[in-house]
Nucleic acid binder design. Sequence first.
DNA 1: CAGGAATGGGACATATATGTCTCACTATTA
DNA 2: TAATAGTGAGACATATATGTCCCATTCCTG
Lengths: 193, 193
Amino acid sequence: MPENTPVAERTRRAILEAGIATLAANPGASIAEIATRAGVARSTFHRYFSDRAALTEAAHELAIDAWHTAVDRAELTEGSGLEAYRRLCTELMDSLPALIWWMSTAGAEHAPADFEEEDDTDRKIAAMLRRGHADGSIDPKLSVEWISNSVWATLYAVYYIPAESKGKLGNFEARQQALRTLMKSAAADPSAI
Amino acid sequence: MPENTPVAERTRRAILEAGIATLAANPGASIAEIATRAGVARSTFHRYFSDRAALTEAAHELAIDAWHTAVDRAELTEGSGLEAYRRLCTELMDSLPALIWWMSTAGAEHAPADFEEEDDTDRKIAAMLRRGHADGSIDPKLSVEWISNSVWATLYAVYYIPAESKGKLGNFEARQQALRTLMKSAAADPSAI
DNA sequence: CAGGAATGGGACATATATGTCTCACTATTA
DNA sequence: TAATAGTGAGACATATATGTCCCATTCCTG
């Protein structure tokens, strides 16, 4: 029922984002926790998302969208492979919460409809990395498979480290050092980083 | 009751390891799942671990032990900082399952008794990294905080990537490339890796 | 072979999360 | 001012996970 009015839309977004943040920290969190974090009653939660499944589905769509948008904006076919890789990493770090949650649920679910698109996006990234191998900008000893997956590991670190190690490392420093880490490891000539 | 006989001890280990593996993959897994994975009935599980808490406590001790053992064996005070760092990473990769599960629960719980020891081990690592900064072997632009935390991110990648990307990347290749990744990013002069 | 150890299977009560529903209150808007 | 959208609080039935207990069966060992 609530769908059109601005206030309802804002409430929906608040619940959705609280859900993503909460589930990223604790995948087993109860709906009550999510509602509390969103600042609404549990009944209000169910008013917007009938199920727990309805929430995760919406979060899934949001994450897929962020994912495609980031890859598009990175313009993976431009410049050297390593340059494109840098742009990709930078873009991904701008949508951290949704992407982190998405990855943490990757093994469990796979909507059949997404498979084609997802494979297509994966192919773009693989092609970018192979180009990097070919043009000599990306370390030939690191496989496409490893690089494309280990990026996520570093994204996890960027997301969680500032939160856990209280005060010692800010968001900005974490992102800066993460990018340096990613570039140095992927580069064929890391001394140029 | 069951504690002494070899068969009971083996059963206990089987349940404990199944618990670690299962909870590493899915922290919200039910006890029934763990028992099934261990190949025992749920009642047998409760015969060895009264609680879910009893299991996690045992797993926690196992992980803490693996952690201290790995750090000890790395002999962090020997050689250059970077050499010690390589030994540490190698050792840690030998106890992956327990350490991975342990890290995934790090935020939630903290037994007060462990704090001193844990801080001590952390200090050894921090000292090793600072030595690496001082002797010029470790990249001065990467903070001790970042390096010591981001190691865990790469360990996650080593653990999960071979499992998820079926067949494309074996355990051996994953470990090799992970070590290369870690060394290149931490090194002050990565071209020597 | 006899006896105890180890286990599987299942019954049972309980706790917690979940989804649905109702009702009263508030704020916005016509 | 009157109507309506949005919300909070809570009751309720249900499902699932959990912990405990009991008994029959199997396996090992003396």
